[in-house]
Design a protein around this nucleic acid. Structure first.
Lengths: 218, 218
DNA sequence: ACGAATTAGTCACAAAGTGCGACTAATGTC
DNA sequence: GACATTAGTCGCACTTTGTGACTAATTCGT
């Protein structure tokens, strides 16, 4: 099992790496990984591994996929189960010994299978961004809408229009305002919001044919 | 590894089950399953298991997820990797010995973990319907647009409006007409189409907050 | 032969959703 | 007090979507 822990660091997304167990290994860093014990579920194992590396439980932990190509893995396991962990930007302080955050687009040498897991994690995050409260788990409990928009722009890799973003957010009933305001130095103070999803009237839209093109196994 | 093979049978979706290895088992049927060999990737293992059960390679085979709760599995394995196989409706003829198609909403007794894998497969199919050419792999190489719409309605569990469906399909450039027509008894003959995705101008829409509500691990 | 029934396919319009420029608001800086 | 800076809203053109009503081509019944 391999965990891809992500947290925003400034304007970049960073992943948590730990030093390789064996210093003679070719790759000096690795994703936190371990084998599930007999008495735990894989979700429980993921929590345990993440706690060991991060020192605290993550804001969200969800399964990515299983990886069983022939690429090398630090444990030489035949198959890995990848998990994505999201850590709020405020809580990215001290991590475990022998661990460090690296920008996801500038990782040091890690085992090939782990690199492909990180790449798959980034793709999955973009794909699930509108299905799962991913962006909110990368922020502290209360945040400004500009912060939220920045996270979306970071994950999507493109700029969003302020008015459209807020209109869509309002229509979705995902956040509610607090009565606190933050002044971040210069400029007008921003209202703080919290993630508080409400029941929405199911819109029941028609069919979409979004990303369909080709596929494996045809 | 467990394979959920699906094919439409009339107006219902059916899954392929095989007789349990051990007749003393509580559940007499099971999803096709096996352990990957040392020299094969998990994708290769999935193809092998599916061929053994179906007698032919499926139209599409993609990974679902890993399942490692404590529920019972015929092999007593600690974790299962679920795969989804899609079989065209034309080719659902003879299957391997000791195998049969059952409607997914009326499965006989199978191991609890396998039942949850089937349920997860159905959810994943609905979620990926607009990302992956799922519907096309449940149909023969050429098909009418009404057949295609029927598949979508079967998978989504609701009726779609004919004009909207066709408009969206045309805009997506996923199908091209052949010069054949099929007359299916009564009514006007329908033109046959084939799945032939073309490069589309990327629409780059704004953000959607579709299915975000709650989640695990908070 | 001819009309009803049946299935395929299209059109047009109202309603809803989206992109985006331009505006107002509240703060710090000089 | 003017100005830079960030927050937040408005309005409008344009696009997308839901839907009913239409036309088209065939079989079936009499």
């Amino acid at each position: 099992m391999d965990i891809v822990s992500l947290t925003p660091h400034g304007r970049r997304l960073t992943a948590l790496l730990v030093r390789a167990d064996d210093p003679r290994e070719k790759e000096r860093w690795a994703l936190p990984h371990d084998v599930p014990r007999r008495d735990e579920t894989i979700d429980e194992a993921a929590v345990r591994i993440e706690r060991a590396a991060l020192g605290a439980p993550p804001g969200l932990l969800e399964q990515l996929a299983a990886f069983g190509d022939r690429r090398r893995h630090p444990s030489n396991a035949h198959v890995s189960i990848g998990y994505i962990a999201l850590v709020a930007s405020g809580s990215d302080g001290p991590v475990a010994d022998q661990a460090a955050w690296y920008p996801v687009d500038e990782l040091p040498a890690i085992a090939p299978r782990q690199r492909s897991i990180v790449e798959a994690a980034m793709q999955a995050i973009r794909a699930r961004l509108d299905q799962s409260p991913i962006a909110f788990r990368l922020l502290p409990p209360t945040f400004t809408l500009s912060q939220l928009q920045e996270i979306y722009e970071l994950l999507l890799g493109r700029r969003l229009h302020k008015a459209s973003f807020r209109r869509a957010l309002h229509a979705s009933w995902l956040v509610e305002p607090t009565d606190e305001w933050r002044s971040e130095g210069r400029g007008r103070p921003a209202q703080l919001f919290r993630y508080a999803p409400r029941r929405r009237r199911g819109s029941r839209r028609g069919v979409r044919f979004e990303g369909v093109s080709g596929s494996l196994g045809g």
